[in-house]
Design a protein around this nucleic acid. Sequence first.
DNA 1: CTGTTAGCGCGTTCAG
DNA 2: CTGAACGCGCTAACAG
Lengths: 345, 345
Amino acid sequence: MGNPTIYDVARTAGVGVGTVSRVLNNSTRVSPETQEKVMSAIWALGYRRSKVARQLSTGIQHRNIGAIMPYITPPSFVERLRGIQMALSHQDNDFNLILYTVSEPDRQREQLLTIIDQSTVDGLLITALNISDEERSLLTQAGIPFVLLSDECNGENNCISPDNIQGGALATQHLLQLGHRRVAYVGDAFPNNYGIPTSELRYQGYLSALESYGIAFNSNYVALGVHGEEAAYTLTQALLNLPEPPTAIFAMSDIQAVGCIQAIRAAGLRVPEDISVIGFDDVQLSRYVGLTTIRQHLEQSGYMGMQTLLEMLNTPDQVLPRQLPPLELIVRGTTQPFNPVQGAG
Amino acid sequence: MGNPTIYDVARTAGVGVGTVSRVLNNSTRVSPETQEKVMSAIWALGYRRSKVARQLSTGIQHRNIGAIMPYITPPSFVERLRGIQMALSHQDNDFNLILYTVSEPDRQREQLLTIIDQSTVDGLLITALNISDEERSLLTQAGIPFVLLSDECNGENNCISPDNIQGGALATQHLLQLGHRRVAYVGDAFPNNYGIPTSELRYQGYLSALESYGIAFNSNYVALGVHGEEAAYTLTQALLNLPEPPTAIFAMSDIQAVGCIQAIRAAGLRVPEDISVIGFDDVQLSRYVGLTTIRQHLEQSGYMGMQTLLEMLNTPDQVLPRQLPPLELIVRGTTQPFNPVQGAG
DNA sequence: CTGTTAGCGCGTTCAG
DNA sequence: CTGAACGCGCTAACAG
């Protein structure tokens, strides 16, 4: 049933396995004619040599590090990927980077099991995924060190995350300080499919900032939907149609902020003259768009995550817990002080 | 010298290897106390079981596909990655995706050799890299199928590329049709470090378009430098200081076009009122910036590349050569007809 | 130049 | 419940 082996090749070529191995490895010590016989046998049988057997025999150990995340191409993941990549190349380990994407939330467990079962990786970097206690112990049991790039850590030292609540507060405070009072929140509906509480945490920050400024909470100003530019666009349209539309919007991510801005412009209004918009993340795009936002050092978090994982693999004894630099308000061109004239909406 | 094996563990635990294997695999049929003995032996020796041996023994074959490219995070690579990823998940193969980045051009050969030598991958997708004849035959000899995502194919059917010359002509023609006569080219100095002729090809297109419109070539309007936004910015500044500055710029990539635009604005001029700018690639960013550009279907090229590689791996008999859809002019907001008033520069 | 044989480290029988 | 022996597919060392 299985694929043909060197023994099969040797037999049909009428030679010994050693010879086959030799031609496979370009050992020059083979006569041209036997070489030819072997080659044709290989071709006839469709033989392909087994990676694993070869590796076991040669003793060559190539180590793999897996990085698993829901997506790889949205800006915020690209940034982290860059950091991951940098950490990997900086300490020129000979680690291979294997990328896994969790195509559907339901399949996360299954994928993790496969990874563990096939023992494909020596370490795992888990990004923006919610790992159950069972999954954790499975990983530990299998002896696979892992670190979490998460949105909420409970004091674990193999976990790195920004302070999303504080970030949400920071963004909202900026708007409030500018004099805005009708401040909306545009974010993902929570809990989302992957069980990540990002939106909820930033929303909590929004709430607390409102409270510390003594501003009454208005549920009409909370617009939740699926993640992405399009949804943010639609959500914003609804916001603009309110009897008293907001004069400022805090979008939980830069990409959603862009959606908000486009909706505002499509409605014939200007940013920031008529409505201020602040995002979150500070992905590369935001620089080009001139978006005011909260920088959460995504690239660095990827870097640190990979760095600690490498430590866990190389010197398991002492891994130092790392901490991200504090969140930063980056003021660019999409927010400005509240102007009493505005709000004619 | 090597790492401890189950034999070592068995010996120090005073049991047989079979028992060790059982506790390693959660076989419940082990008495709690021997289990305990084994565990502590494992811990004491710092034992970690060998992936390869396990795989060889269980017969589990996990196949790896490698994707190698100079970088992974610039927009044009992200787009291709998305396509690669999609192709991989669409036909739910159980292939792992291993990402390699060629940190330095000089190390490309070395990295390829390592990949071949360690027989890490079953197939290789080579993106934006110049592969020598020797490297090709090394790959072939090792039985590793590969496909090229390149910028110039010589009729090979394991190679996918856009028609860069035609694209360059397309972009330039657009500017010319709008009435511009002083048209500049901003691109990478060629040949670049990785030996990729992209810039040169698009430049050829630029030249041919100029010629077909009977416009004299002016070397002052050709600005070449390292790739990236910053360099394009500087290059553009020089262009603007010319006695007769260009009224339109063709930048060989979107990211460079963005650099041009920023330089123009920094000089107090407007795009497109004072100077028109067209890019190349149509990466996601361009949509947000409203950049006129040439769409080269990057995502689709990644998809097609992975698709044909999978075919080569699964049904080596017949792989159909694929062809990218034609390049497309995408007119957005950064180009407009030449206005005789402009050029006061 | 070539056939034979002994491991590589682990899982899994098969007897105890 | 546990220990011993075999085999996974290949490489390398050793005789011819």
